[in-house]
Design a protein around this nucleic acid. Structure first.
Lengths: 192, 192
DNA sequence: GTCTATATTAGGATAGAC
DNA sequence: GTCTATCCTAATATAGAC
């Protein structure tokens, strides 16, 4: 990969940004090209099609799937764990937004990212369930089963992120609520 | 309104169905027209623009916003309450899907439904917070504040609905998990 | 009330010049 | 490696015939 690998990266980064704002269907090759100072034909020199561009974004950006944090470092203490995810999102608002927007968009039939997110969720749920089981056996302190807790925890993260994206001027504090709700779901003491 | 009010209703119903499957941006006037046996020009006779069609759907379909159930009958017992919402979704999979898809799509900048959902959430959160306060004062049995519980509960509903839409073959039972997680969030006894 | 015809714009993609 | 030119398709919308 020579000095011009940079162009590809530039395009990928620009595409990710646009995606976060307008969704994939709302993002045109022209718009991406504009942002990197090319024409859309210039962009198509690096990626054979719009779909190929998305495919590469999904394949590379592991950090687009923030839940990997939850599944990968499952041996740490859970309040710290959660704080890390919240901090991760907070430090990379663009990434967090891209993640939510793309996942949400992929609910519709025939969306090119549908299979990716379906498999991703299935994988993360399984790993979290396993981590919960290792730590607590077949019941969490809250009384939920590991599988129920995994599903509920992911749902809570996604749902809250979306509420926040919908209205960033929400009065109450997002991350405090997240931490408190998570503590309750797991059944471990929080500081609220 | 004469005998032809029916046509308008037909179009609105068809549009809502398509919307649930493909999202708003993924739904064309041609597709809607096909479904009711018209050309797109025929559809535009009833609604001056695609946007006007969506606006009317949002203005009329109160039941698109399933959370009204949570806010409106907040004096009932909460396990029953929740069961009702779940049943409501279960009986109207098309409506529930339309709701989730449209809400998710409206996260993106400049989406025509963005303001609608922002205001809707703000309203429902406020009403739920008030209902919780009436019932439990400033702390729920779970230890959450009424505002935190309202936010978390809505997030959980949305997040789980989305996981279900993403993969309807999920092994574990959706409504059981929902009920259990809700009981934990509120801090009231469940039957799990 | 519904159609045909048409205008306009935009999107994605290819061929080929430089 | 990037552009111009072109093609194709599809979308919204308007005008006007019937």
């Amino acid at each position: 990969m020579g000095a011009d690998g940079g162009r590809r990266e530039e395009i990928l980064a620009a595409a990710l940004e646009m995606l976060a704002e307008q969704g994939w269907r709302g993002t045109s090759l022209n718009a991406i090209a504009d942002r990197v100072g090319l024409t859309r034909q210039g962009v198509l020199h690096y990626f054979p099609s719009k779909q190929a561009l998305l495919t590469e974004i999904l394949a590379r950006r592991q950090d687009l799937n923030r839940e990997h944090l939850l599944a990968d470092h499952a041996d740490k203490d859970w309040p710290d764990q959660l704080a890390e995810v919240v901090a991760h999102d907070h430090d990379r608002p663009g990434l967090a937004r891209a993640y939510s927007v793309l996942m949400a968009e992929s609910l519709t039939a025939g969306h090119p990212a549908h299979a990716h997110f379906r498999d991703h969720y299935s994988d993360v749920r399984a790993r979290m369930t396993e981590a919960f089981t290792r730590r607590w056996g077949d019941r969490l302190p809250s009384g939920l089963s590991p599988a129920q807790a995994a599903t509920a925890l992911l749902a809570l993260l996604d749902g809250m992120q979306q509420q926040w994206l919908l209205d960033q001027d929400q009065a109450d504090d997002h991350s405090d609520t997240m931490r408190a709700a998570l503590s309750v779901l797991l059944g471990i003491p929080g500081d609220h």
